[in-house]
Simulated assay, not measured.
Amino acid sequence: MTRGGQGPGLETAVGSVRLPNPVMTASGTVGHGTEMARYLDYSKLGAVVVKSLAPYEWPGNPAPRLHPIAAGMINSVGLQGPGLSRWLDEELPALAAAGARVVASIWGRSLDDYAAASDLLASADGPGTEAVVAVEVNVSCPNLEDRGRMFSHSGAMTEAALAATATCGLPRWAKLSATGDLVEIAGAAVEGGACALTLINTLLGMVIDTEARRPLLGGGGGGVSGRAMGPVAVRSVYDVRAALPEVPIVGVGGIASGADAVEMMMAGANAVQVGTATFADPRAPAKVLAELARWCADHGVSRLDELIGAAHE
């Protein structure tokens, strides 16, 4: 039954972070600020996760950066960004004014970078800072201190990167890739201080330009995202929920419909993020939210707690 004929309750919580609904944007897919405001009412989404920011400006990779593939895309943007300080001054106030609950995403090439980003967030007191509800720590990026391997390929480095961000004063969500022993890496992130896990980031891939006989993207390889990776993301969320049942999870990867969101929550996600679908339809996050509400109403689901982890019962 729905609540007094008012529709299902879509409220959820990612640890201590309470959200009016479980649908967020995914980092890297809606920019750093209000670029998508003409298509989306930010105040009606669970949260807006901004593109990952380093404690310094970063130019990203050479073009071409994006290429469509079957059921998705591959990108090698290279985490281009204005730097955390400029974002706090120039972009965050507009996000707050738009009513967004903001999840700041940070990254670095070293542990010192993560610590510097954390310190910048801790010291921020300008307009809009009250809108930041959590920090997503993107550890799925190259690590100069470990011979260029991804932080998230190593449990020890994942734990160290999370520990380096302890000063930020906000709940931290570790964003991980489905590489290696994901359950072990997830446990290491929690040991480092992660309050929640965002699963999963893009998968490593490559497209070859057969006429030029070289990688098509300017950065060589890239990250694969879109509908094709949905089952990988669902399996990742399911396995980590089974191993770490008390740790909140944000599911991301291949979500383009309300049914996709339901599946991810049944696997164990407390909330979801919509990413690549937004490139084809800028209104995709709002569409997913509306379809999720209809699905719950049609199936007599009055609270999301009835869905979260249901596939484990």
Rank of each mutant, 00 (worst) to 15 (best):
M157S: 04
G46K: 03
L244R: 02
E130Q: 12
S105E: 03
A269L: 09
G192I: 09
E291N: 06
V23E: 10
Y39K: 01
T25L: 04
G31H: 07
L182E: 12
K44E: 15
A116I: 06
V288R: 02
R172C: 13
M157E: 10
T12S: 11
R101P: 03
P285K: 07
L162P: 12
G31W: 05
S225C: 11
C296N: 06
A243K: 01
V139G: 06
A104W: 11
A166M: 03
G33M: 02
T202W: 00
V77S: 08
G251F: 05
A96G: 15
L204K: 12
D298G: 00
K175L: 11
V17I: 11
T129M: 15
A116M: 13
H67Q: 06
H299L: 00
G205M: 04
G5P: 00
P127R: 02
A134Y: 14
D298Q: 12
R213K: 12
E246Q: 08
G72Y: 04
P215D: 02
V49Y: 01
R86T: 14
K51N: 09
P142N: 14
P59N: 07
V224L: 06
R149P: 08
G220P: 03
A160Q: 04
A156K: 08
M36W: 02
S52T: 11
V48R: 00
D239A: 01
A196R: 10
V190F: 07
L19H: 09
S27C: 07
D209W: 01
A188N: 14
P55H: 09
T129H: 09
G218T: 10
N61F: 08
A166Q: 13
A188S: 13
G7A: 08
A47K: 01
T158M: 03
V17A: 08
R109A: 13
M264S: 12
P282C: 01
G268H: 08
G15M: 15
V17G: 03
G4T: 01
S140N: 09
I249L: 08
I69E: 00
A311T: 08
T276H: 06
R172I: 10
G33D: 07
V190H: 07
G309P: 01
K175W: 11
G220K: 01
G300Q: 00
P245L: 07
P59K: 09
D281R: 07
I308V: 15
F279D: 02
I200N: 08
R241K: 14
A277T: 10
A174Y: 04
V48Q: 00
G187W: 04
G83A: 12
V237E: 02
M266F: 06
N270G: 04
R227F: 00
E291D: 07
A267G: 13
V224S: 00
V103D: 12
A164W: 03
P22N: 04
G126L: 08
S257D: 00
L307N: 02
D298I: 05
A286C: 05
